[in-house]
Amino acid sequence: MSKILIGRYVAGDSIVYRMDPRGKLLATILFILFVFLANNPISYLIVTIFSLAAVAATKLKPKIFWDGVKPLIWLILFTSFLQLFFTVGGTVYWRWTIFALSSYGFTNAIFIFIRFTVIILISTVMTVTTKPLEIADAIEWLLKPLKLIRIPVDKIALVMSIALRFVPTLFDETFKIMNAQRSRGADFNNGGLVTRAKAITPLLVPLFINSLETAIDLSTAMESRGYRGDKGRTKFRVLKWSNVDFINLFYFVLLLGLLLVFRTH
């Protein structure tokens, strides 16, 4: 639970860690788009090699990536099976009512499997090597053009960073209140759905009230510390592009080129 919310950042040190989060976010988005260009064995081989190279560059244990794929493995297999049995075309080996096993079915199932897996791998590379806060910074940068249509991107970014900062605090608070109510005889583990839903009120109400109080305290503190909106605000946290990022993006351009050359037209 906490892993999903706080992000899956794993401390480490490799070239991927030193990349600018903006570059990583951009590369991840580009990769997801590029994968859809692959349409034949050689282009799928290219994206597979490419994503495995990215995984290797993190210098992290393969288990971390397996943990990223694991929760979705049934979805991937299920989708692949659908492809396997419902695609018609090429040599048909076996047929029963609406189900069929065909050569197209086999290749499509494998392609879908690869497509899913490499997308998850590349997103995992991004999320395990980039702190949630850096991802937030990168999203802010990506959203910057929206300022032109008067969307308060800076405010949204500040809200995002404060929200991230308070996630661990909220977790501590939740455990503390749970323990306090357990001590008063509340039972969060037993009973049916309705009983459990009821049992959660003594947890949710205090959490809500405390969060509200925190928010009021925080806004008082922010105002005292001179916060008066975005106008004239400077930023302490700045991101810097480095050569690594250009090399990284160059690889993705190369990937685009290779895919365009080798895909079936």
């Binding site: 806060l133 960073s161 925080l218 503190a221 922010m222 510390r225 001179g226 916060y227 400077t234 930023k235």
Partner: peptide, 15 residues
């Protein structure tokens, strides 16, 4: 307010 010690100390300066 800040995500790290340095960010928090900078908050008043940013404002």
């Amino acid at each position: 307010v800040g995500a790290t010690v340095a960010d928090d100390v900078a908050f008043g300066l940013e404002n």
